[in-house]
């Protein structure tokens, strides 16, 4: 690791004041991704501000839903009785990710800030626009089996790795962010971004901003939700494709469907076409298949990941069927 100054802070204001003084400083939450990247010399902060002592750890019911403290651990979040009861798809998605040890360390805020697992991003001997803007994208014509099929550009074909965030996307969460000037709420769809002109950026958070909480609105599909994850081994692997789905039902009719996909894009991929197709339709196998078709028709695979189209369809259908059955 590059040498860094270390300080621990005790309140958000202190954290923000410190980070505003140094554009090369980084907040340290659970550290499960940041330390990994620092050891690879991908992340090179010269100052670490340990926010582990901040009291942003509360998980509490609010008038509109539930608020997840940014520094509450993933394990605690997944196991909170209110979340297991009212947002089980969030529990399921969190528990699909990483290992027990990592979930014990990782924070909710930090989970959203995970960087891509693209192996070229991790290997500093390789070109990568995300790590070193302007150096090129080695994955575009390289080994891109794990990479994006939606929303990529020639500058970056990486995918966003979190499972938790896929559920949060389907749950229409928002991210509460504090800076020295203001507190703002970022809707989940705007939090993570597509690579566009700036593949080095993963999200719309600015330097100097601190995530304080994730707000999840109430939903009426808790029982009819599902998280499906397809991966190369049965546990402790990143998704090839994953789907979080929730169905608001009126009998067998779908009033609304909330669907997000992981492992397919630079951000949690909200399956808007599938959702639009399913609106006010009967919950049938045929409609699920058509919705999956509608979503995956827009996919643009790379040389090694054409399989993600078929896999994505199957995952979508399975998630919808599982959600419809309602036994999460």
């Amino acid at each position: 690791m590059k040498p860094f100054k270390f300080s621990a802070v005790n309140n958000p204001a202190e954290a923000i004041t410190l980070i505003n003084k140094n554009t090369d400083a980084a907040f340290l939450g659970g550290g499960t991704n940041l330390l990994d990247l620092m050891k690879e010399h991908v992340a090179l902060p010269n100052e670490i501000i340990d926010i582990g002592n901040l009291s942003l750890k509360e998980i509490k019911a609010t008038a509109s839903g539930i608020s997840l403290g940014a520094l509450a651990k993933n394990t605690e979040t997944a196991n909170h009785p209110l979340i297991r009861k009212n947002f089980p798809v969030l529990s399921k998605a969190i528990l699909a990710g990483a290992s027990a040890q990592i979930r014990n360390m990782a924070t909710n805020g930090g989970n959203l800030l995970q960087r891509t697992r693209c192996s070229y991003f991790y290997d500093i001997a390789m070109p990568c626009n995300k790590r070193n803007p302007g150096s090129g994208c080695a994955a575009l014509e390289g080994f891109n089996r794990m990479h994006a099929i939606f929303g990529w550009t020639r500058d970056c074909v990486a995918v966003y790795p979190s499972d938790m965030a896929i559920a949060l996307s389907a749950l229409n969460a928002s991210v509460k962010v504090l800076s020295s000037e203001r507190e703002r709420i970022i809707p989940f769809r705007d939090f993570h971004i597509l690579p566009g002109a700036h593949p080095e950026k993963d999200n719309s958070l600015q330097h100097g901003e601190l995530i304080t909480a994730i707000e999840v609105p109430k939903n009426d599909f808790a029982e009819h939700s599902a998280y499906v994850k397809i991966r190369d081994r049965n546990s402790y692997a990143f998704a090839l494709v994953s789907v979080a789905a929730g169905l608001t039902l009126n009998g067998n009719t779908i009033q609304t469907a909330s669907i997000a996909m992981g492992g397919v894009a630079h951000k949690p991929w909200r399956a808007l076409n599938a959702e639009a197709y399913l609106k006010d339709k009967a919950a049938t196998a045929a409609n699920f298949a058509k919705a999956a078709e509608a979503e995956m028709a827009l996919a643009q695979p790379l040389a090694h990941n054409k399989f993600k189209i078929e896999m994505g369809k199957k995952a979508l259908i399975n998630a919808l069927e599982t959600a419809f059955k309602g036994n999460i």
Binding site: S119, Y122, A125, A138, E141, G142, F143
Partner: peptide, 13 residues
């Protein structure tokens, strides 16, 4: 990756 001669899979992940 034959373009560089190194492994594109270089961690336990």
């Amino acid at each position: 990756d034959p373009r560089y001669g190194n492994f594109a899979t270089r961690s336990f992940a």
